[in-house]
Simulated scan of single mutants.
Amino acid sequence: MTEIIGVRFKDVGKIYYFSPNKNTVKCGNHVIVETARGVECGEVVIANREIEDDKVVQPLKSIIRIATDKDLETQKKNREKEQEIMKVFAQKIADHKLEMKPIDIDCTFDGSKILFYFTAESRVDFRELVKDLASVYRTRIELRQIGVRDEAKMLGGLGICGRPFCCKTFLGEFQPVSIKMAKEQSLSLNPTKISGTCGRLMCCLKYEQNCYEELLAITPKVGALVETAEGRGIVEDANLLTGVLKVKLDKNPDAAATAFKREDVKLLKDGKIRIKKEEFQALKGLED
């Protein structure tokens, strides 16, 4: 077992493990640590805990120290400095006439590096911009192009449900979401109904997917051949949540489909959930 603490550097960012270095820390404490980006100040969101060795990427870095009041003041000044840098960043982009949108600024705790986040429709040659910014701030400069999901997470906003974005409030990391999930949940494959403000598939499609997969495993799909108390038939509609199937009986093909509960039918040959090629091509961009 390995003793760890969990540290987060953004309000709703990824949690990173560090060794407490014989310190006892509580959730809400701040610690100074060394990361791949440089020395950073982060908030402890997981207090001292032992976890299995295979869940930790070794070697595990130790915290440098528990943050002091002076460290927290430095962190506060860095956040204020970032707001001023953002104004300069936007002006420099305009000066260089680059097709890019400034999104966020991140200064490392020790001031050794400044990260500039932006979005753009395509790749941008920003070499001259980097030189310009480096001449102003006299430190290491890194420009990082991000996607629309990351942009939404950084900027925040309200989703079509009327609530703040999940990615801004509690999702530490994005989970893969696919068109197949929307199809399995019997949702309309209308881009405006299954995509979020960012223009990509809604993250909430993932929340109940495990439940839908369990129900799909026990529910005959549309097109399935089943045996009912009234004879054989083909499933025309299946409601996963209620378990009600509408079956077109072979003995009376011109009549309306008859409703049966899934536990009252016997599956002879299951159907398949298919996504039409034209549907997939039309919606493929929502997965990117």
Results as ranks from 00 to 15, higher is better:
Thr2Asn: 12
Ile5His: 06
Val7Trp: 00
Val7Met: 04
Phe9Leu: 02
Val12Ser: 14
Ile15Ser: 09
Tyr16Asn: 02
Ser19Ile: 05
Pro20Val: 03
Asn21Cys: 01
Thr24Asn: 10
Thr24Gln: 11
Val25Arg: 03
Lys26Asn: 15
His30Trp: 01
Ile32Gly: 10
Ile32Pro: 05
Gly38Val: 07
Glu40Gln: 06
Val45Gly: 00
Ile46Tyr: 02
Arg49Gln: 12
Glu50Asn: 14
Ile51Ala: 02
Ile51Val: 07
Val57Trp: 05
Gln58Asp: 04
Leu60Thr: 05
Ser62Ala: 13
Ile64Lys: 15
Arg65Tyr: 10
Thr68Met: 03
Leu72Phe: 01
Glu73Arg: 12
Lys81Cys: 05
Lys81Phe: 09
Gln83Asp: 09
Ile85Met: 12
Met86Gly: 05
Met86Cys: 03
Val88Asp: 13
Lys92Thr: 10
Ile93Ala: 08
Ile103Cys: 15
Ile105Asp: 11
Asp106Trp: 11
Gly111His: 03
Gly111Lys: 07
Lys113Arg: 15
Lys113Trp: 04
Leu115Gly: 02
Tyr117Lys: 04
Arg123Ile: 09
Arg123Met: 01
Asp125Pro: 04
Asp132Ala: 11
Ser135Glu: 11
Val136Cys: 08
Arg144Met: 05
Arg144Asn: 11
Gln145Met: 13
Gln145Cys: 13
Ile146Glu: 02
Met154Asn: 09
Gly159Arg: 05
Cys161Glu: 08
Pro164Glu: 00
Phe165Lys: 05
Phe165Asn: 11
Phe170Trp: 06
Phe170Val: 01
Phe170His: 03
Gln175Arg: 10
Pro176Glu: 14
Pro176Val: 04
Leu189Ile: 00
Asn190His: 03
Thr197Asp: 09
Thr197Lys: 12
Thr197Gln: 15
Thr197Leu: 13
Thr197His: 14
Cys198Thr: 04
Met202Thr: 04
Cys203Met: 07
Cys204Asn: 02
Leu205Phe: 10
Tyr207Met: 12
Glu208Phe: 05
Gln209Ser: 08
Ala217Asn: 11
Ile218Gly: 07
Glu227Tyr: 09
Ala229His: 14
Glu230Thr: 12
Gly231Leu: 01
Arg232Lys: 14
Ile234Arg: 11
Val235Phe: 02
Val235Pro: 09
Asp237Pro: 06
Ala238Ile: 00
Leu240Gln: 05
Thr242Asp: 05
Gly243Phe: 08
Lys246Cys: 03
Val247Arg: 00
Leu249Ser: 03
Asp250Ile: 09
Pro253Lys: 02
Pro253Gln: 04
Asp254Leu: 15
Ala255Leu: 09
Asp264Leu: 14
Asp270Trp: 13
Ile273Asn: 14
Ile275Tyr: 06
Ala282Ile: 06
Lys284Phe: 13
Asp288Phe: 15
